[in-house]
Structure formats: structure tokens, C-alpha cells
Write a protein that binds this DNA or RNA. Structure first.
Length: 156
DNA sequence: GCCAACGTTGGC
DNA sequence: GCCAACGTTGGC
């Protein structure tokens, strides 16, 4: 079982939006970065747990927990000319881009801000701190434990 | 809204 | 296959 951090701009898709889904499951689409794609296509497994992170706002933060309910499959938005994520190089034979399905789990009691993460020495090596642009990142088990504890939940 | 970091593209 | 130009992300 692995842990991940997924970034999203809340103006585009927020943790509350995930909560509102009827079946509480949602395709995580639109990722257009090869390193993140490789995680989606090859590594992420059903049951893996996700830190849901809000970026590009005044106070970026981890706000809740989600879980993986379907492993990587072709991202249909890349094949749809009407989608803002359309990629003319993608085809059903060579989809290029992949997505996974996620399900809402629980909100943090207290959000864990990027600032708080930066100020916590054991978290200093997280890609979030070192390579902030990667939108799908692995999280070490120790890092997961520290962050959910800071957030006031068990993460179980 | 600015700009640094960095990933991608394309000419050579 | 190098690398300059360009586009995007995301913190501030």
C-alpha cells in the first residue's frame, strides 16, 4: 500500500466537489506531465491513500484524504476535441495520458498548510517542498503519518 | 499579477 | 542529441 499527494486548484476541482459526487468516486483526469503520468499508469494501486492538496491559492494546504478505487486507464479528455485537455497526439491506440478514480474519505480536522510542512524538518525532503510543480507525488509512510496527525485525524 | 523554476518543443 | 525558446505551474 502506497501513499500519494494529489494537487488540484480548488477553483477547478476542490475537495468539497469530490464530496458532492453521487457515488463519491471521480476520475482524476487532465494530468499532462510525464512523471505524474507514469505514477498514474504504472504505480498507483487500488486502496492507496491520497493527501488532497489545494494549490494556487493564498494559503496552499492539504485539506483532506481520498483513496484510489480504480487503477490507471486512458484519459478520455485527451481524445475529446471539445475538452480543454485535448491532445491531438493521443489516440485510442496510443492514449499517452492516463487517469485513476478516487473516492472521498474524510476531511482533516485542521488543514495542514504548505508553510507548516516546510517548517517541519522531517517533511523537508517531500517533493512538495523540493519540486513543487509535480502534481502527483509519492508520500513516504512516515510523512503520511506526520501529516495526518498534524491534521487531527488517524488516517485509518 | 509577478516571476522563478522547470518541463516540453523544435531547429539545427 | 543539444540547447534556446517557449509555455505552464504555483508560491508569493
Amino acid at each position: 500500500m502506497n501513499y500519494w499527494l494529489f494537487k488540484t486548484e480548488p477553483g477547478c476541482f476542490s475537495f468539497d466537489d469530490l464530496k458532492k459526487r453521487p457515488k463519491m468516486t471521480e476520475p482524476w483526469d487532465g494530468v499532462r506531465n510525464f512523471q505524474a503520468r507514469n505514477f498514474l499508469r504504472d504505480t498507483i494501486q487500488i486502496g492507496d491513500l491520497v493527501l488532497f492538496y489545494h494549490s494556487n491559492i493564498a494559503e496552499p494546504a492539504v485539506v483532506g484524504l481520498a483513496e484510489i478505487v480504480r487503477t490507471g486507464y486512458p484519459d478520455t479528455t485527451a481524445l475529446n476535441p471539445n475538452s480543454e485537455h485535448f491532445d491531438p497526439k493521443a489516440s485510442p491506440d496510443k492514449p499517452i495520458w492516463y487517469m485513476v478514480d478516487v473516492r472521498y474519505r474524510e476531511p482533516l480536522v485542521r488543514v495542514v498548510t504548505l508553510n507548516a510542512i516546510k517548517n517541519n524538518q522531517p517533511l523537508a525532503d517531500m517533493p512538495l517542498v523540493k519540486r513543487s510543480r509535480l502534481s502527483i507525488q509519492p508520500v513516504a509512510a512516515e510523512e503520511w503519518q506526520i501529516i495526518v496527525t498534524m491534521g487531527g485525524v488517524t488516517g485509518q
